[in-house]
Design a protein around this nucleic acid. Sequence first.
DNA 1: CGTTACTATATGCAATATGCAGATAGCAGG
DNA 2: CCTGCTATCTGCATATTGCATATAGTAACG
Lengths: 124, 124
Amino acid sequence: MCSHDEARQKRHKKERMLEICILTLVNHEMMHGYRILELLQRFGYQPEDVDISTVYRTLHRLENHDRIISTWEDSSLGPNKRIYAITETGRRMLADHIEHMKQRMQVMKQLIDLNEGKMRLDLD
Amino acid sequence: MCSHDEARQKRHKKERMLEICILTLVNHEMMHGYRILELLQRFGYQPEDVDISTVYRTLHRLENHDRIISTWEDSSLGPNKRIYAITETGRRMLADHIEHMKQRMQVMKQLIDLNEGKMRLDLD
DNA sequence: CGTTACTATATGCAATATGCAGATAGCAGG
DNA sequence: CCTGCTATCTGCATATTGCATATAGTAACG
């Protein structure tokens, strides 16, 4: 538990774009995995970029960490759906991710400028 | 080989911030792994964020894919150093990464704006 | 009724990535 | 001799991911 969560803290720092996109969607409104997969295209995830299994497993992981919760929705047409909603913890995590993403963008801008010669790198 | 490289292509799309930082540094001037580790702090990587083994293994991977090449430098004081230099392939890869990073920044900006209420998400 | 297709969720397996710990080794200072 | 810093590398356990596959409901076609 403890070491598990500590590890999570570290990894939290490393990108986690898919989690951020999923949390953003679920924060906007409750929805199920298959719909999330479709909507991920809004964030540049083409079907060949993410496997559906990755989406489902990310959802399970987020639920295990209480970032989201699910309920089953009986469907009269087609199979039933597991509907996800964001939790208070999830909202906080999302906010953290967004803050961290801003810092990452600073670094990315720095890297772009360096590589385009708009900035110098002095090593001392 | 083939499936290996195809897989690489996919993963290429997924962040690879550490590779970009390392290639940027090695593109600037030849240097060894331990120095790279220190200089990574310029890109926000604090010592607790990256393990030295990850740096060395990333360097090995990059060399296996001909993005960089290494030579041993005899050191009169302290242990010898493996000095890395970027290759033409590596420079092209770096340029690709930078281009892709620009696109990712667009998405990140979109996510930030969405989460700060500066933008709406209409799902249809 | 059998087949195909689309929606929807889930798992097994293999490959890859990563942190942690430790091995090896040179050099310097006490 | 021991400690500490520099420098590179490997073993192990765990995490993540893509691919393939299983399961299952509905609908359309012949």
